[in-house]
Design a binder for these strands. Structure first.
Length: 754
DNA sequence: GCGAATACTTAGTACAAACGTA
DNA sequence: TACGTTTGTACTAAGTATTCGC
């Protein structure tokens, strides 16, 4: 691998994070909450670079030429940032479009539908499954993407096979990870190992799908009469429609949101739409509205909920469990699968992240007539609530969702889909890591290619090459275009603007430093100073020439151009594969470097967390420091101090016991020495555990490990590491995570290589 | 070939549940 | 057992990438 991708190669000193300066660019200061500071300079300084200091002569030559192109640049209209709002049209056209039902002609699963109610969901154990064809040989590591070109030839064969139901394998693989609790707990019948079966190759996602539809938000429950709303100091009874929206605001009164102009403006506008004419005439100024009693009422309710008796709480729990059992599962291809989100999102006020222009708008209640249901033709279709109708029932087995509706804030579609532990999600996840592993095999070639492209005569190619370099080196997101004014102003690589970077020919003793400062996904700030190669630096200077701060840095590039190019370099390659690849390879390398054989389990786990942390830093996964952070740190320190005292006491006792034994020379005192010795050892271990915990927590203050663990790190790396060092897998993955990664836990051996 | 629509993954946070301790 | 802390889960926004339809 080339040396400039050193985040993959050098140990990252996560322990050295210093949370000092929260003083970055002023322009972000007032931008409310979480433009969290990055203090990552240190970690990132590790990104060393070989200097490619051959004189960049060709560059100069092209510059004038390019400048010309640039000025008249109108011909390449890759970017059209100022699009018109199209939401209304979108909404209108939706109704008409979705009418046409697709005939998929999939083989109807023969037996499930007609089964009696009590056997509605049968346990995997007893069933015979539809065998699905796998497009590869049995080699785990060669999980090919589904969209292979050979589809057609296989189709015929496949269909035949589908009808021919085979019994499924249930062999248990060797080398199961130690799972201490497993036996004792109720992990019931044998889990279905979908990863040992063949996959669909015809683009269909399932052959049979049956479910009970969504759970709707409970209807609005009007406030008791004694809870008053006041307008301009006078009590006023609101119509239920207006009252409901008012309660949304009242519930958020303590939140900073409700003080923001945009939030208030949006809320008020939408609230007025729900008022009757009388209310509309009267309520004209939000400032004159007094929601205090409502707010108090809801606080009291929440207190009451907390103070409920055990029995009452149990009752609620049982009701939830009942709902889960009834609506939380579906049958997909003969297997009972958990649904991720079977509840429809309740109405409320939209809370966008960052400076969202739509914050405070009313998110309206979703009703059956908004709902599109997707299931098999021959399944028992879900019933809409009495007296209502679905918008549509369709049978599209080319998609994975069960239910969808269009949300009113952005006009986007929301879906109900399966849990990450499901076959359909798991296969996709596995496939994702296989694509990343394929990138591993050709990443050197790709890197040398984009190095070459920095010298290209064509501006568009140089821009593409520099952008790709950032994506690869810094794990930046692709940066799709967004509709201006519809969302918070955030960017990714391709959508970076001139104002987001600063160039320093020399800074802090390093040459050619680029300073990044922008808001990325979720308005999380990305701040980083990176030394880059001279050619990159010169290119950037050129890209920025004659541009305004709010002009696009890469004006001849967008994500679709970039991805088209990547597709040519490797089948299935897109910008985001680099993030997956770099995250996983970093974990693997860090684990190798940080784990030492002679350490005990807590220390090894600290190493694991540090490796995980290195990835989280690379991917810029941040979190707000927990509210109780300082306090819990303090508590931990108190514990550590106490333990230290305890240790010195124990040591003293040991010493005197030894002295005693020397004098007495009898069995009893010898034994006493042994006991004291053991006590000292025990306390030392406890102390060490606490200290490790403190270090870990401190280093984790504002870094979120979960996101990378769940989405970027090939779980087989972690599983292999656990197996290699005999670490119980549940030290690394909790129950949910173990379910999600069941395939990896089952298939990876201790020598797995990403 | 393009913009729009759609499908699906990735993301941080709020709050509930579980856990540990006095 | 009560309480405070930690951990896990649900929720849903915000991305990426592909597909659709003209």
């Amino acid at each position: 691998m080339s040396g400039d991708h050193s985040h993959n190669e050098e140990q990252i000193d996560c322990g050295s994070r210093v949370n000092d300066s929260h003083k970055h660019k002023d322009k972000y200061k007032d931008k409310e909450h979480k433009h969290k500071d990055h203090k990552k300079d240190k970690e990132r300084d590790r990104l060393k670079h070989g200097n490619s200091d051959h004189k960049d002569s060709s560059d100069k030559k092209h510059r004038d030429k390019e400048k010309m192109k640039h000025k008249d640049g109108s011909t390449d209209k890759y970017k059209d940032k100022h699009k018109e709002k199209r939401k209304e049209e979108k909404m209108k056209s939706l109704d008409g479009k979705i009418k046409k039902e697709k005939e998929n002609g999939f083989a109807s699963p023969p037996h499930v539908k007609s089964e009696p109610e009590d056997d509605f969901y049968h346990s995997p154990k007893h069933e015979r499954s539809l065998k699905r064809e796998r497009d590869v040989d049995d080699n785990d590591s060669e999980f090919k993407p589904k969209k292979i070109k050979t589809e057609n030839e296989k189709k015929a064969k496949k269909r035949k096979q589908d009808e021919d139901i085979k019994s499924k394998k249930t062999k248990v693989k060797k080398g199961e990870v130690t799972d201490g609790k497993k036996k004792g707990k109720k992990e019931p019948e044998e889990k279905w190992k979908w990863w040992e079966e063949e996959r669909y190759t015809d683009g269909s996602k399932w052959k049979f799908l049956e479910h009970k539809g969504p759970v709707f938000a409970p209807p609005y429950d009007p406030l008791p009469n004694q809870v008053k709303f006041y307008y301009d100091g006078k009590t006023m009874k609101l119509s239920p429609e207006a009252e409901e929206v008012a309660t949304f605001f009242a519930k958020m009164l303590d939140h900073e949101y409700t003080t923001k102009d945009i939030f208030r403006k949006n809320f008020f506008k939408d609230w007025r739409k729900e008022m009757n004419s009388e209310e509309k005439a009267k309520i004209t100024d939000l400032k004159k509205c007094n929601f205090a009693e409502m707010s108090e009422y809801f606080k009291a309710q929440s207190e009451a909920r907390k103070a409920m008796s055990k029995a009452e709480k149990l009752k609620i729990k049982e009701e939830n469990e009942r709902l889960l059992q009834e609506y939380g599962f579906c049958i997909m291809d003969n297997h009972k699968e958990r649904i991720a989100n079977f509840r429809i999102e309740p109405p409320g006020l939209f809370r966008g992240r960052g400076d969202h222009p739509k914050m405070g708008m009313l998110k309206r209640r979703i009703r059956p007539k908004d709902i599109i249901v997707n299931c098999s033709k021959d399944s028992k279709h879900p019933e809409p609530p009495p007296g209502t109708k679905w918008k549509e029932v369709r049978h599209d087995n080319k998609v994975t969702w069960l239910v969808s509706w269009t949300e009113n804030i952005q006009g986007s579609i929301k879906y109900i889909m399966l849990n990450p532990s499901s076959r359909i999600k798991g296969e996709k996840d596995w496939q994702k890591y296989e694509t990343a592993r394929r990138l591993k095999k050709c990443v050197d070639r790709i890197r040398s290619q984009y190095h070459e492209d920095w010298k290209s005569k064509e501006m568009r190619i140089r821009q593409r090459a520099v952008a790709l370099y950032f994506i690869d080196k810094l794990a930046l997101r692709a940066g799709n275009e967004k509709e201006e004014g519809e969302t918070a102003d955030t960017v990714g690589c391709c959508s970076l603007r001139v104002e987001h970077i600063k160039l320093y020919p020399e800074k802090d003793g390093q040459e050619y430093v680029v300073e990044f400062d922008f808001l990325g996904k979720d308005s999380i700030r990305y701040y980083n100073k990176v030394p880059v190669e001279k050619r990159v630096f010169k290119n950037l200077q050129l890209f920025m020439e004659n541009k305004e701060p709010d002009d696009d840095l890469f004006d001849r590039l967008n994500t679709s151009i970039l991805n088209k190019h990547l597709q040519e370099l490797m089948d299935g390659l897109t910008a985001k594969v680099f993030r997956t690849y770099n995250a996983s390879i970093t974990l693997q390398q860090q684990l190798k470097q940080l784990t030492s054989a002679d350490e005990n389990i807590p220390a090894k786990i600290l190493s694991y967390n540090r490796a995980n942390r290195a990835v989280a830093i690379l991917c810029n996964h941040q979190r707000a420091p927990p509210k109780t952070f300082e306090k819990s740190m303090q508590n931990l320190q108190t514990k550590i101090d106490a333990k230290r005292d305890q240790l010195s006491d124990a040591k003293r006792e040991l010493k005197s016991a030894k002295a005693d034994a020397k004098v007495r020379r009898d069995e009893k005192s010898k034994k006493a020495v042994e006991t004291k010795k053991k006590a000292v050892e025990r306390i030392e271990e406890q102390l060490m555990k606490l200290e490790v915990q403190a270090t870990d927590r401190e280093e984790n203050k504002q870094i979120a490990l979960g996101t990378s663990k769940l989405n970027y790190l090939d779980p087989r790396i972690s599983v292999a590491w656990c197996k290699k060092w005999s670490i119980p897998i549940e030290k690394i993955y909790n129950k949910t995570q173990r379910e999600k990664f069941a395939w990896a836990i089952d298939m990876a051996d201790d020598d797995y290589e990403f």
